Lab assay of single mutants.
Amino acid sequence: MSGNGNAAATAEENSPKMRVIRVGTRKSQLARIQTDSVVATLKASYPGLQFEIIAMSTTGDKILDTALSKIGEKSLFTKELEHALEKNEVDLVVHSLKDLPTVLPPGFTIGAICKRENPHDAVVFHPKFVGKTLETLPEKSVVGTSSLRRAAQLQRKFPHLEFRSIRGNLNTRLRKLDEQQEFSAIILATAGLQRMGWHNRVGQILHPEECMYAVGQGALGVEVRAKDQDILDLVGVLHDPETLLRCIAERAFLRHLEGGCSVPVAVHTAMKDGQLYLTGGVWSLDGSDSIQETMQATIHVPAQHEDGPEDDPQLVGITARNIPRGPQLAAQNLGISLANLLLSKGAKNILDVARQLNDAH
């Protein structure tokens, strides 16, 4: 009898209710805020589980004197976190989706994509230029951005401005803007500013005609071990179906173009009346040469937790077992079709030249 009692006690200790789920994140304040929001949602869904947040620095956090596009290494903000995932030191990792490459290392998958916040870019102005827009900034004003995508589009749109690289986390960039006289304004992701509670610093939100956004911008991705079915089931509740389908289309477009950090590629997606609209573009580094096109596809946005595919093969690095396969494939095909259209119009040449120029500098 006593033996059975011990077995029952052991089973209770090993039951999922007692389990601590370890969540990996970057150390920056924004990353911690984003991770806290994901953990809060998981806690609400699984009140019996405990969650421990483990923060670590990544290569991208450490190399702050070089433009991201020049470092010449993929997975700048993800490699150390993936290493911890691989060694079973954490069970899942919360990322900004735009930091996750469209091809993940073997053994990993994006197990959830959370509801997207505003994906557009924002302009934050130096205190002396508050009330201005990019259009009304004085001639030769210097605007800071760490992104080739932003610089290429904005140089084309605002030729009277000069664009220079600015690195560091959000706090560091804002301090550089406010305390030094080098920059009249800087460009940042609206979602990051909003998550930090800095709505009052948003001086201008850039519309798609001015600057399309990065693939996955404004959404959070939760990376897990691809074979860890328990954790895949656990994080599945975080999937937002519309965000998922938009981001599958965007990531398929980028992957098929073979774009990345070192080339200016941008997108804009919208879901309306059962249609998914995808606009994508590529630019030369100075913005003088560009190709942009829009395509659409009829896609039914499923309700969360309709029964999805059981075999769960990944699409552009994403596993969404609780979302039907048909809409996911339709979104992926839309991204591939748009990429093929741009490639047929000469996108590869623009991107190759951009890559060579970026590598040469």
Rank of each mutant, 00 (worst) to 15 (best):
T41Q: 07
T109A: 07
P208R: 13
E135P: 11
P327H: 12
L276I: 05
D99Y: 05
C114K: 08
I323T: 08
H95G: 04
H126T: 08
L134E: 03
L220D: 03
D228H: 02
C247V: 09
G317F: 01
A40F: 07
S284V: 01
K70S: 07
I187M: 08
K98C: 06
I54V: 10
S147N: 00
K74N: 13
A112C: 14
T102K: 02
Q153D: 01
G48Q: 14
H256W: 14
V103R: 11
N349R: 15
G131E: 08
D178F: 06
M271F: 13
T136D: 12
T78Q: 10
G192T: 04
E310W: 04
A67S: 05
G131S: 11
S344G: 14
A303K: 14
L338M: 12
D99R: 03
K87W: 12
A189Y: 01
A339D: 07
R175H: 05
L137S: 07
S141G: 11
I350W: 15
C261A: 01
T279L: 06
Y277A: 13
L92V: 06
E210Q: 05
L42K: 02
G259Y: 05
K98G: 00
V235D: 01
Q155M: 11
Q217H: 07
L76T: 11
T133N: 14
G260S: 00
R167V: 09
R246Y: 06
L85H: 00
G168D: 01
H300D: 15
V235R: 00
V93F: 07
L161R: 02
M295C: 04
V103F: 08
A84Q: 06
K345T: 15
H256T: 14
R173W: 03
P105W: 09
T41C: 10
D233W: 03
R156Q: 12
S45T: 13
E86H: 13
D178N: 09
Q194K: 12
Y213Q: 06
I53L: 12
L220E: 03
L341C: 07
D311K: 02
A84K: 08
G326S: 11
V90S: 07
E242T: 08
G346H: 05
N171S: 12
P127M: 03
A112Q: 08
G346E: 15
S146W: 11
P106A: 11
H83P: 05
S141L: 10
H256D: 03
L68Y: 11
H83K: 12
W198L: 12
R149P: 02
C247A: 15
V282S: 05
T279A: 13
V282D: 03
S165I: 08
L338R: 04
D312Y: 12
Q304I: 03
D240Y: 14
V38W: 01
H256V: 09
K227M: 05
G308R: 07
Y46M: 13
A226I: 07
D178V: 11
E89N: 13
E223N: 11
E258D: 09
K348D: 11
L64Q: 08
T59K: 06
H268F: 13
G308A: 11
I71D: 07
R321N: 06
H256E: 15
V237M: 08
K70V: 14
L193W: 00
G274Y: 00
Q217D: 00
D99G: 05
G259H: 01
F183S: 10
P264T: 15
D307I: 01
K98N: 06
R173P: 01
N322E: 13
H300E: 11
G144S: 06
